[in-house]
Structures are given as structure tokens and as C-alpha cells.
Design a protein around this nucleic acid. Structure first.
Lengths: 204, 204
DNA sequence: CAACAAACAGTCAAGCCTGTCTTTAAAGAG
DNA sequence: CTCTTTAAAGACAGGCTTGACTGTTTGTTG
């Protein structure tokens, strides 16, 4: 035989797969080794892609990380939307929404995003790419939360309480990266749900 | 002249000064360049200390960073205590306490601490040093907040509300490192102060 | 004042990361 | 079937960081 006639994959598809493998390896490594520990060499090894191929698709490390940021953004959106769809209804809904947010902000995707935020803080180029994306995600998350809770954003104070809720879970997520205290988190969210229900129910 | 008889400093003092210079330079660089960007070479340059002297006091980078963590912890405590002492009394006290916390969690010391947290997440050794210190600081901050607000921690729910408040400002601090939106932060704290006063006043 | 120890200074080699370069294989077009 | 273009592979050099090493100055102690 001269060449294997079986494997006949169009180059567009090949590229897509390669890029996906590289981006996913990047996100994995962000979680595992942190931003600084995510070297291009490790990424290509982890992805099972040769260094040449990697540099063909992503000429510089920034190109790779930027692509990974976009990829991550998409994953984050999908994950959250899925969780929102599976939300129960009834009296415990507020608590369930908080649980969903809490889970999301302690998941690996959050960890990877955290590494990017902190990395972007001292990297001009990365910041330019991360900031707008993050703003979009933030707005989308806000919208989703409002929708899940079924509250009226026009009512004064409501918008701020939702924002506070999101900042709270962000803070909880950050704390979790160092010491994972699930019970503590749970109690806080219990109480927060109570406050939220009370404050928001008066403004239907 | 043979030697300048004027400068006669005991070695203990010299060491102390040198170490302090190095630790402060380290903290500065953490803010400016991030954890990964804080190289030992940069630190010695910034501190105006020779490389030899640096390695004499801190044989490895970890030794240096660990010392910086402790130093930072002390600074954080002092800063917060000072802010607490200057707190006004009266009806707007709750808001003032939140402002104090908000300011603290957006200050350079917080930024440096953030870099250490994130760095420690993927560095076994660093984590072992940061985690216990952070727990101490956390408890101390909690205690201080309770004291400033003058609330009764025994009352069910109060403890969780205080914890939530601290996690909220932590989240706000994290968000600020990417996009500094002072007005947004201010409105959120306004609203939270209102809620807090209402929730806590019922439990004197 | 003399000997010792600590503090300080600066150089050096090893290892790692990034990105360039050359070469080979595969796909698409004529 | 051949030619061109794109994808993939792997070696290579330049730059940077870390920590070890040698030598010098300064303080302390007998």
C-alpha cells in the first residue's frame, strides 16, 4: 500500500480539531498550573500536538491564550445556561439560583477565568482582550440571574442587589481557591437567600 | 582618611533594614508586575540591594516571598486597624464601615495579596504558608467588622451576614482589578448598607 | 588589636521558555 | 496525475531566571 485511503479528512476540519485540542489543553493547564505555569511547550505536549503545528495555528503565546479566552467564554456561557434550564421552581427557587451561581463560581472554568483575570491585570495585551469579553459575560450573567429570579430590575435597589449577589459569589469563589469550606459557603448562601427573598418580594 | 568613623550600625539593625527593603520591594513588584513578573533580580534591583546580599538573607525565592507574605499580613492588619480607628459614629456608620472595607479590598495591599492567593493555588509550598496566615487575617477582619458594626454575633444569621459582607467586598475587589468602576461599587455598598442596617437592627 | 563571623558584592552555569527556521506530509485545484 | 498551497513536524538560537560560588567588607568578641 502506498497511502492509507481511509483517513481522508478535509483540512478545514483538521484545523478545527487541532485548534480545539490546543485551546482545551490551555484551559486545563490554566487550572492545573496557573497562568505562568501554562507554557506553550506544556500545552503542545498536553494536547498531543507537535510544536510546529501549534505555532502554525497560534504563532505566539498571546494568540493561543486569547483564543483560549474566547473558547472559555463560550464554555462558561453554555454551562451556566444549562444549569439555569435545570432549575427547579417553587419556594426554594431563590436558594437554588444561588446554589447554581455558587457552583459556577467554584468550578474549574471559574478557576481558569480567575487565572486570566489576574494575569491580564499586569499584561496590557491580554487585558485588552479579556476586559471586553468579561464585560459581556458579566452582563449576560446579570441578565440570566434577573430572569431566573424573576425580579423587576426597574425597581430601585433591585439592580444593585443582583450585582451584589454576583459579586458575593465571585468573592466566595475566590476564597474557595485557597480553602474550600463548603459548609460555610452553604450557610452564607442560605442567609443571603433569605435576605434576598425578603428584600425583593416587597418589590414585585 | 582610613575609614569613616561616623557610620557605625549594629549588624542586627542592618539586617533588619535590608530585609525590610527587600520585602517591600517584593510587595511593590507583586502589584506592579504580578507574581510571575516578580523575579528575584528585579527585587534586588528595586530594593537597591546586591544580589549577594539578597541571597544571604533569602536563599531562595520562596524564602523571600514567604517573608513578604508575613510582612504583608502585618501591613494589612495595621492599615485596617488604623482605618477602623478613624471611623465616624452616628447613623451613617454602617455605610462608613462598608466604605472602609471596600477601600481596603481595592487597595494595593489587597492586590498584592490577590497575586499571592492565586499564585499559592498552584504552588504547594506557598499555599502551606499563605493558607494559615490568610485564615488568621480573615478571622481578625471578621472580628474587627463585628466590633465596628457593634452587632451581636450570637444572634442567628448575623454571623453569616458579616461573612457575606466580607465575601462581597472581596468580590468587588477582584472585579476592580480588571475594570475599576467606582460608582457601581458605591451604589452597591449604599444598597447593602441599607439592607444590613435593616436586617441587623432587628437583632440588637 | 587580632581573629572570627556575619553581611555584602558580583560573576557564572544550568535550565527553561519563546518564537524562528527548515523540512516533510497532506489536501485541493487544474 | 501534477502542481500549488496549507498543515504538521522538529531542530535551533536568543533571552531570561534561578541559585551556587568566590571574594570582599564590616561588625563582634576575646
Amino acid at each position: 500500500m502506498t497511502t492509507t485511503p481511509a483517513a481522508r479528512v478535509p483540512q478545514e476540519e483538521r484545523s478545527r480539531v487541532m485548534r480545539a485540542r490546543l485551546m482545551e489543553a490551555t484551559v486545563d493547564l490554566l487550572v492545573e498550573k496557573g497562568f505562568a505555569g501554562t507554557t506553550t511547550t506544556l500545552v503542545s505536549e498536553r494536547a498531543g500536538v507537535s510544536r510546529g503545528a501549534q505555532l502554525h495555528h497560534f504563532p505566539t503565546k498571546n494568540d493561543l491564550v486569547l483564543a483560549a479566552v474566547e473558547h472559555l467564554t463560550a464554555v462558561r456561557g453554555a454551562e451556566l445556561a444549562a444549569a439555569a434550564a435545570a432549575l427547579p421552581s417553587g419556594s426554594r427557587r431563590t436558594r437554588a439560583v444561588l446554589q447554581m451561581l455558587g457552583d459556577h463560581f467554584t468550578s474549574p472554568v471559574f478557576t481558569a477565568a480567575l487565572e486570566l483575570w489576574v494575569g491580564a491585570r499586569t499584561d496590557e495585551t491580554l487585558l485588552a482582550a479579556v476586559a471586553p469579553l468579561e464585560q459581556r459575560v458579566g452582563r449576560e450573567t446579570h441578565r440570566l440571574t434577573v430572569e431566573c429570579l424573576g425580579v423587576d430590575e426597574q425597581h430601585p435597589g433591585t439592580r444593585e442587589l443582583i450585582q451584589a449577589t454576583l459579586d458575593l459569589v465571585r468573592g466566595l469563589g475566590l476564597a474557595t481557591t485557597i480553602t474550600d469550606d463548603t459548609r460555610r459557603r452553604s450557610r452564607i448562601l442560605d442567609e443571603w437567600a433569605r435576605v434576598l427573598d425578603r428584600e425583593l418580594k416587597e418589590k414585585p
